[in-house]
Design a protein around this nucleic acid. Structure first.
Lengths: 178, 178, 178, 178
DNA sequence: CATGAATGAGAATTCATTCAT
DNA sequence: TATGAATGAATTCTCATTCAT
């Protein structure tokens, strides 16, 4: 796959190199993708779809805290196991590279995640604040933890992961209830 | 200033356009900067220096929570007041565009901020977790809040800002003490 | 048929488009034609053959002026009825696209036309000038008339056609005899 | 100069070759021309301007036939002396290569020529037919003569030139008056 | 016979950088 | 010190042609 884009940045990765890495001729790529932009968008969409599936894996029922923890760990593990996906989201999945149009097309993948947060706010398990705020903060916290690991600033052993997870939970939990 | 870079992305901004915008000839730019990379680095360093100064403005003494809140708001306001700086940090201040070498050169600017977090951990006001973790989470939370505002997903009125700030504080505060 | 070539120019028409228009696969085309050049040459030859047949249709005997007029009108009508053929001759049937070799191969088609002009010169009905000169001028005059119509500069009603025809005849007739 | 375009056809002439022939780097060309199309248009405009100037050179007053002869010979000599210009007009100065927009911009160059023909029609020296028809036929006849010379089909000695010129004149002259 | 995926040389164009003025 | 014309390597993308199925 196109780890090149992630390794070097979109603009620094010529199609010729992409082709060589993929073991095909440049022309071949243009049979399957209209242009370079479309390749990037395709990757972006694939990763977003992964998110939707991966996050909800093995999520238990009923216990909101437990659910959140599993989701958090799921995403963290996905990033750690797919560093390219992480870097892609960090470096590429950002305007002006990705058009808002393609961004919107990815929303359906996140529908279950959205539902979880919305229901948990209504059940008073999570803070009574904007849904978007809770989601962005939660996502941002996983990103932060992953970034520390990848930048080599922190080993992210099980203690540190537990710390990060607890911080994230305290960040969004309803302090009145828990 | 080089809002061009922010508006269009580094690679999409030719030096000729930078020169025209600056009202000088391309050649002139090369008297003051070794190459394009250095210009980007210079901007990056300037913004980092701003951080160091801006964050510590009007920070009171003694009350850790109050101190954190002022710093948080300072950074948030800086970003809102300097959207270019925010976007630059988001889009550009990221490997592989910025070398880790130049990143390290910016550390001294953050020394006071680092001191604050370190002291607060030691005084048990903040959680007993890695310094880097606390700093990254805090920074990430301000970024998250700012991102919501700039993407237009949230208005970020005073209630929402207060929410975000409270979440950030609960994220890092020592739950035993507070 | 390959109106594509006429509509867009030879070099601007990829084989893939030719194939799609023809409803076959690219590979199929290469069963019947050696290469792109040969397709162009084949079309050129077809049109030249048309010329030979069309021009001599309904040409009466004995009266040279009448003969010329019918031939002139025949060619003009052919062009008007087959705009693609006209445009092809104008845009494509021109070096360096068509090799002189293929041009020579088309000469036999024009043998009857040649005979008419030659005989008419000898009979003093036409000017005592070079055969080639008379033929080229006559052909050129039909082209000029057709061009005016296609460029929309002239409606080419019957009066205008009659004018053009009379001019062409006065151009080549033997002024001593007529 | 860009004889290359003429020698090989527009599409068959890569910019790299144009640059090498001109003794400059490819990039340099793009300082002076926006793109390849503009170079072609520039040449086209230059040649059209030449036409306007060259044709009217040494044209005497009062005698229409003499005037026409001089203009005819002027154009013929220009083509013979500038084979590239001739070939360019033949191969390139034709849609779909030249846009009608650029064609229209060249009309002013032909204003004096137009005036001559118009006045001569009104004075009954030329046939009472459409101005455009007379102009196109005249132009076409010079083209025909030049084509014969360049294709090597005719030597075009002074006798043959005189023949062609006489034919052209009989083509457009008012038979009632002359 | 028919297909169309694969090829890769080659095209137009861009742009960071240099250097004579 | 300031200029900006000149450079040419590098980039994206096209398309005539081939060949395994």
């Amino acid at each position: 796959m196109l780890e090149l884009v992630v390794e070097q940045g979109v603009h620094a990765t010529p199609m010729s190199q992409v082709a060589k890495e993929a073991g095909v001729a440049v022309g071949t790529i243009y049979h399957y993708f209209k242009n370079k932009e479309q390749i990037i968008e395709e990757i972006y969409s694939m990763i977003c779809q992964d998110f939707g599936v991966v996050l909800m894996a093995n999520v238990p029922e009923n216990d909101v805290k437990k659910q959140f923890e599993i989701m958090w760990i799921n995403l963290y593990n996905y990033f750690v196991g797919n560093p390219l996906a992480f870097k892609f989201i960090e470096f590429v999945g950002v305007p002006p590279i990705i058009s808002s149009e393609i961004r919107i097309k990815s929303i359906p993948h996140f529908i279950h995640i959205r539902d979880f947060f919305l229901a948990s706010i209504l059940s008073k398990d999570l803070r009574d604040v904007s849904l978007r705020l809770i989601m962005q903060m939660s996502f941002g916290n996983v990103i932060s933890a992953t970034r520390l690991k990848f930048k080599g600033e922190l080993e992210m052993n099980s203690k540190q992961i537990a710390d990060a997870l607890e911080m994230s939970w305290d960040c969004i939990k309803n302090p009145q209830k828990h």
